[in-house]
Write a protein that binds this DNA or RNA. Structure first.
Lengths: 217, 217
DNA sequence: CGCATAGTTTACCGTATGGTCCATAATGGG
DNA sequence: CCCATTATGGACCATACGGTAAACTATGCG
């Protein structure tokens, strides 16, 4: 089924034919129908698999060792690195499926929305923890900041698909982390902390999490 | 050709058949081929039209009356309002085309990239002006902040297509504007300015620019 | 071993697809 | 008016499409 998923990922649902799928999987038509029912059901299975992995990767990043803010920064930089490293321009199956099908296929829309909602929840939780730990300023709604980070993560993927150079993606990742509000009593150290964090997290993200985040696209 | 564009916009390129196009346009097949050459050429014409309008709408927003920061805020809120108002979930033809075709069709990739690059330039220019006018803090690279705003704009569209509720889009728009760095000597008035701007710009964006931005999707 | 069941391959099906071609209609110029 | 050219509609084309059915192969049980 991984071969089928990859084919849908590269070519899109509508433009992937049954001949494409038999070729990719090495199975005959009857076998594909026997195992999966029909093209649409196979596609949903592939999408489910991808979405599960994407959610798990986010969860892993945001549950890892380190302080809440560090985890958040590692995740954002890892996502940026994955997007930048996607030199074949395949993008993200979830986003591409949403673009192609969410308006006409409620099954796709529902699956994609589930992952997005889950991601928003995890980001919000992590930001809330960072606030309680004193890494980020309290007094801002963590769900609102979570919305911003979520939108940036999705936006990096979207601009990459539109041919944006790596610098745009890297800059957006760095800037959103740098601009999250710090506690007021560290206002003077803010510039220093920003520089330190940027350097540290960029390196960590690139080296540690590229593999984990590969499937997130 | 507007009818053809709308059909491609709703259904996607591959899934829109020639029968769909003859129905939408009221023209026979021979006429469509006579006027446009083939399906792909018609699609590129539709995409060109859409991209030109999108770029013009951004230009209009960022060239309008008002201070540079106000213009930026108006644009971001207008885009958020358009996205939130897209209750049919049609999304943005440019983004959907990039998702469906940019990986396999260089003509599409080039067109989409042109608009994105142009938008980045306009945002960067506007942010630079806001810095020189003292509305935003100097000392940050305007291109980097432009990247962030661009990514947020594209990300709002992307999450909307994934079924995000209006609050996520609204919050992301408000937060990115609120978090752009202010001049250091207005740090105390920052909270006040943020509240004032949020209220003013939300209203202005909804009322003034919804129409202009409609085509941006 | 034989038999029943499940899995597989592949030819075939009816329908859909983008594009072509031709008869007809519309338009403009002499 | 007539004639030449262009535009149009729609029938038709060859090919592609998702799905089905039948023949064959593999597997497990008595």
């Amino acid at each position: 089924m991984c071969a089928a998923r990859d084919r849908f990922w590269t070519t899109g649902y509508t433009a992937t034919s049954l001949d494409d799928l038999t070729e990719a999987t090495g199975l005959g038509r009857g076998s594909l129908y026997g195992a999966f029912g029909d093209k649409h059901a196979l596609f949903l299975r592939a999408l489910d698999s991808y979405c599960d992995e994407a959610a798990a990767a986010i969860r892993a990043d945001l549950s890892a060792a380190g302080s809440p803010y560090e985890r958040l920064a590692v995740h954002v930089h890892a996502m940026a690195a994955v997007i930048i490293g996607d030199t074949e321009g395949r993008g993200c199956l979830m986003a591409k499926s949403a673009a192609e099908l969410a308006g006409t296929d409620p099954e796709v829309a529902r699956r994609v929305n589930r992952v997005l909602t889950e991601a928003h929840g995890m980001l919000t939780e992590c930001i809330g923890e960072a606030q309680r730990a004193g890494e980020l300023a309290a007094g801002h709604d963590p769900a609102q900041l979570g919305s911003l980070v979520l939108v940036v993560l999705r936006g990096m993927e979207a601009v990459s698909r539109c041919g944006a150079p790596p610098s745009v993606i890297r800059d957006a990742a760095e800037q959103v982390l740098a601009l999250l509000p710090r506690p007021a009593d560290t206002a003077h150290t803010r510039a220093t902390a920003t520089d330190t964090d940027t350097g540290t997290d960029t390196d960590t993200g690139t080296g540690t999490d590229t593999g984990t985040g590969t499937d997130t696209g």
